[in-house]
Amino acid sequence: MSNYDGYNHLVNFFEQTKTIENEIITIDFCSTYWFEANLCAALGAILVDLEMKNNQIQLINFSNSVKLILEKNLFLLNFSGKSIEDNYATTIKYQKFEITAEQEFGEYLDRELLSQPDLPKMTPLLKRKINKSIYEIYNNAYSHGKCNNVFTCGQYFPNKKKLYFTIVDLGNTIKNNVRKYLNSNEMSGKDCINWAVEEGNTTRTGSTPGGLGLSLIRDFLKLNEGRIQIISSNGYWEEKKGIILAADFKSPFLGTIVNLEFNLNDNNSYALLEELKPEDYL
């Protein structure tokens, strides 16, 4: 599940496998009765990393329900499995992108989210806000993670009218970036994330300012009554309805997972408090 315990399982799996090279790795799902499909982004990132180390991956013993969902969202197709049609269109497909493939990523978002007829009707502004939030995270992976690929996946929960969308990179962690920037080797993983999500805080030092992307998403998700979860190195941080929950895992994930939970049953107008005059915005 997309909660501390669920991510902890993935972090532990990463820790147990990260040094394996040139092996056949069999992953047995016999004790897995539920796998939230958006988490395929994180599992996929770990498995692709293992494949890059010349390992062969075998996934076995799925329960019917888990297998069904991982075939629908094309996850298994990427690991020697097959795919099946998602008739109810509740999955947002698992996909790996090169970090510079922004056009391809945009087409994917359009196909999977914005033009998806089976999702509930959303106001145009809500769609824009969701889209912007996802792009901000994608851009963070590029500018802060300095990674080569991002992995994405999502799931729509029709009963709850919630959409989960997860973006994962195996680049520089928030902990590494913040510790280096603040020259502080004492800060824990969760404290580093806590620092990074504050408006105005950025580890950038060059000619381009930053420090807004995550705070904009937080502002939107508070109004939307959604949730944001960030896992980076050994830090876990989440915010829902303004309440922050943060903790440290025992071992680190060598990258960053961001899960955004959007409430699609949202009719907020997101009206602006004041009309801006041209002289105000420059």
């Binding site: 889209n131 792009y135 963070n140 000619s207 381009t208 930053g210 807004l212 041209p278 002289e279 420059l282």
Partner: peptide, 30 residues
């Protein structure tokens, strides 16, 4: 159709590191 802060930071935000605010206000319109 869609603009995010990362784009505005590098296209317009970056100007403030080189030019004074009054100069930008005088020379740029949106």
């Amino acid at each position: 159709k869609l603009i995010i802060s990362a784009f505005l930071n590098s296209s317009i935000g970056q100007l403030y590191g080189v030019y004074e605010t009054p100069f930008i206000k005088e020379h740029l319109t949106i």
